[in-house]
């Protein structure tokens, strides 16, 4: 990452026409739009996200909450059940759309929280160095060795008043470490640059330098890492929900739909209850990760397609 930045800055300096150097983000977006596979992945991702978010406004909540035992395991395409019904006669398609929206919303919340913690820890650690860095990195190391999935499950089980925020906080609490390390490395390479030293000499406040001067220079990381964190947290949330420790049963969710596959009977006889959610999750994970990797390539000047 250190080399990336160096190259981008000289790129900008070597360009006499533009007075303001093109920002890292603009360069990345230009690269990104030239990558056809990445654009395809981006379109798939946006179709799923927008479809879930906009679609959920048009789904009446009775479709996925009201139990209608007569329509239990309704076959796809019958009685207005486009993708069939589940064990309570609820519409699978409606649950899928709303569940997708819930997973996406939780994923974004976690990704944003992870970025906030990661940037703060990374900036403080990389900028101040010394004992601040030492303490923060030992804390990060400690979180790294925790068996994440187990701690999440244990805390979610023993919290007496469980709600979505507990889930979000638990996924964040055990998922910010690699992001913090990533930002720390990027900030370390910036902290000894001339512009930081100049700003320090002219008496700028440390926090001003960190958040207003260093942070914009590592902004390309933000885009890449938010995307990748989003993909990871959607996977963790659906996994927890699948095991029964995520979203409650009453909330439509991808994890609950997938968990119909944990019962051998419904797995074999009613594949419409779990297969669409499973495939949807795979497609979403692949497309979001592909977009993230493509952004990463675009941000790294050594890997540019040209």
């Amino acid at each position: 990452m250190a080399d990336t930045k160096k190259k981008q800055q000289t790129d900008a300096k070597g360009n006499p026409i533009v007075s303001a150097p093109p920002s890292g983000l603009r360069v990345i977006l230009r690269e990104f739009t030239h990558d056809k596979a990445a654009m395809a992945a981006f379109i798939i991702m946006m179709v799923i996200i927008l479809g879930a978010v906009i679609g959920s406004f048009f789904v009446p909540s009775s479709r996925y909450t009201d139990v209608n035992i007569l329509q239990q395991w309704a076959k796809p395409g019958t009685n207005g059940y486009l993708l069939g019904g589940d064990d309570g006669g609820r519409d699978v398609l409606s649950s899928l759309i709303v569940g997708m929206r819930n997973s996406i919303a939780i994923g974004w919340c976690v990704a944003i929280l992870i970025e906030i913690i990661g940037i703060t820890v990374g900036l403080l650690s990389g900028y101040f160095g010394g004992w601040v860095d030492n303490i923060l990195m030992r804390i990060t190391d400690f979180f790294m060795i925790l068996p994440a999935l187990m701690i999440q499950i244990v805390v979610i089980t023993i919290v007496s008043r469980f709600n979505i925020w507990v889930l979000i906080i638990m996924i964040t609490a055990l998922g910010w470490m690699s992001t913090a390390r990533l930002y720390r490395a990027a900030v370390l390479s910036q902290a000894k640059r001339d512009y930081v030293l100049a700003s320090k000499t002219s008496g700028s406040n440390s926090f001003r330098i960190m958040f207003l001067e260093v942070l914009p220079n590592i902004s390309s990381l933000l885009l890449v890492d938010t995307t990748l964190s989003f993909a990871t947290s959607v996977g963790i949330e659906t996994g927890l929900t699948y095991l029964g420790f995520g979203l409650p049963d009453t909330t439509p969710s991808i994890g609950r739909l997938i968990s119909y596959a944990s019962d051998p009977v419904s797995m074999q006889q009613y594949p419409w209850s779990w297969l669409p959610a499973t495939l949807m999750l795979i497609v979403l994970s692949l497309s979001v990760n592909y977009v993230g990797k493509a952004l990463q390539r675009a941000a790294d000047s050594r890997q540019r397609l040209g």
Partner: peptide, 23 residues
């Protein structure tokens, strides 16, 4: 490698047990 890293593992286990175990 991209696919194996990006796909949530439990989904793959489920699809495999459905196809090779039950199917």
């Amino acid at each position: 490698n991209f696919i194996s890293m990006s796909t949530p593992s439990f989904v793959v286990y489920l699809l495999a047990i459905a196809a090779f175990g039950f199917g």
